[in-house]
Design a protein around this nucleic acid. Structure first.
Length: 471
RNA sequence: GGCGGCGUACCCAAGUGGUUAAGGGAGAGGUCUGCAAAACCUCGAUGCAGCGGUUCGAAUCCGCUCGCCGCCUCCA
């Protein structure tokens, strides 16, 4: 069995067969940098981060491109509001994005192109469309003529005539047809502008992706990804531009992640329910967020809740504690070849359109089995299984730090937030309790434990001594 | 108006024609423990929004009904 991927274009799962043997080329629409990234972005980013990692796990050499839209109306508007420049706004949010990206544990793309750095390619592409009669000029603007491209609507399964009939948006009278869209926009004074055959202006939104994907990946390439909402009009337009220009398919597989809502509502500025990646990661472990996202299938709609994140945090700690337990019990067995049976099972699940919920279920089955065997004192023989568990988890991007480091960091974070108690104090309490325990003064011992519990600390007594955890 | 999605246990969520309907969280009982905690074991849907139908067999296919939502306009 090999990797099956759901292709929006065909509406079916298809066997993934890259154009070049052993090489996967993937382009994902990144963000428009005019504001902080929110958890909806995080879902999309994590979806394709997992795809990226899994393709590498399968042995592909992966060329992964994710762009920045760093010139557009919203950026210009924001710059105006802040009496700043579009360049500064974009620069600020690109930097912030990189911070979020690191915090989320995203693998860096092989290329991260910016629209503003590819104006020459964009202009050349528009020229080509003009030459082929697919584009027309109106004053300093250039539009794509949808009527010139017979395949228009094939991705979103839309019928142009119906679209026109249902259009409720005011139509620019200068366009030949309502669905025609801008390839190049002439600039007003004070707006970012580049020289072009049509005068000073800037690229339209869709054309940058056509230009950049083709530059870095060729045409066609293997997978084009993004959020569901990009299917129309963005990806439909990309297809129209690229295919009209080169008479070749743009991408063979189109992957789209489902939307994320909050309390059954779409995130939006007007509802004021936008949760930023920063805010979430200030309160939750990145691994918890990732686990939460991966616990539902990437194409399903998902409803975000803090409760779900809390539950995910407990779940992820179960995996981490189990591995930490093994690492402690058999540290000398840390590096051995992974047990192929578990990896095969993992591959089977992931091969089915990146079925991360099932892959996670497998991981938890294994966690339980390993704990049972460790309870029986058989840690030493478990090294290959733990290695497989680690590799599986790592392939979906979990377990990016050593379990012991994760647990230590979590404690540090908790201590920092909790100003009224220090590590030293906790250790003193535990020492006093241990003295009481030696004297079999259970009342005093339990009193201390209860007091620490009230502060959010759980004690665990074992043959090796007493340890404390945050709960 | 057009197109599409969703409704599975207390909560989250896989499964889309065929053994006992995954997994996580919460809960109950048990093992271990001075007692706990952790870990482990056991138990939780005779049923998958409702009603009909197709089939030897359906959560899975078809029809209708109810409820929720998305896209068609910037949007991950």
């Amino acid at each position: 069995m090999s990797l099956q991927v759901f292709n929006t274009l065909s509406g079916k799962k298809e066997t993934f067969a890259p154009l070049n043997e052993g090489e996967a080329r993937i382009y994902v629409c990144g963000v428009t940098v005019y504001d902080s990234s929110h958890i909806g972005h995080a879902r999309s980013l994590l979806t394709f981060d997992v795809a990226y990692r899994y393709l590498m796990f399968l042995g592909y050499r992966v060329d992964f491109v994710r762009n920045f839209t760093d010139v557009d109306d919203k950026i210009i508007q924001r710059a105006r509001d802040e009496r700043s420049t579009a360049e500064q706004i974009a620069g600020r949010y690109i930097e912030e994005f990189h911070g979020d990206s690191r915090a989320l544990g995203l693998l860096p793309p092989t290329h991260e192109p910016k629209a503003t750095e590819h104006i020459a390619e964009i202009v050349a592409l528009i020229r080509r469309l003009e030459e082929k009669g697919a584009a027309y000029r109106v004053d300093g603007d250039v539009y794509f003529s949808v009527a010139s491209f017979p395949g228009y609507g094939k991705l979103s399964r839309k019928n142009i005539d119906e679209l026109e009939a249902g259009a409720r948006v005011e139509v620019d009278e200068r366009k030949k047809a309502p669905m025609d869209f801008a390839l190049w926009k002439s600039s007003k004074p004070g707006e970012p502008a580049w020289d072009s055959p049509w005068g000073k202006g800037r690229p339209g939104w869709h054309i940058e992706c056509s230009a950049m994907s083709t530059k870095y990946l060729g045409q066609p390439f293997d997978i084009h990804g993004g959020g569901r909402d990009l299917i129309f009009p963005h990806h439909e337009n990309e297809i129209a531009q690229s295919e009209a220009a080169y008479d070749l398919p743009l991408a063979r597989v189109w992957m789209h992640n489902g939307f994320l809502n909050i309390n059954h509502e779409k995130m939006s500025k007007s509802l004021g329910n936008i949760l930023s990646v920063r805010d979430i990661l200030a309160r939750h472990e990145p691994a918890a967020l990732r686990h939460y996202m991966l616990s539902s299938h990437y194409r399903s709609p998902m409803d975000f809740s803090e409760q779900g994140l809390d539950e995910a945090e407990k779940a992820i700690e179960r995996i981490i504690e189990t591995i930490a337990r093994f690492d402690e019990a058999a540290p000398e067995k840390a590096t051995v070849p992974a047990d192929p049976a578990l990896l095969d099972d993992f591959r089977k699940e992931m091969d089915d359109d990146f079925n991360t919920p099932r892959a996670l279920a497998l991981i938890f089955d294994e966690v339980r089995a390993l704990n049972r065997l460790m309870d029986e004192g058989r840690a030493a023989e478990l090294a290959p299984r733990v290695a497989a568990l680690k590799q599986s988890a790592a392939t979906v991007g979990l377990l990016q730090e050593a379990p012991a480091a994760f647990l230590a960091r979590k404690k540090e974070r908790w201590l920092k937030a909790k100003k009224n108690i220090s590590r030293k104090e906790i250790e003193e309490w535990i020492e006093r309790r241990n003295q009481a325990r030696v004297k079999k003064d259970w009342r005093e011992a339990d009193r201390i434990r209860a007091e620490l519990f009230a502060k959010g600390i759980v004690l665990e007594d074992s043959s090796g001594g007493t340890i404390w955890k945050v709960r």
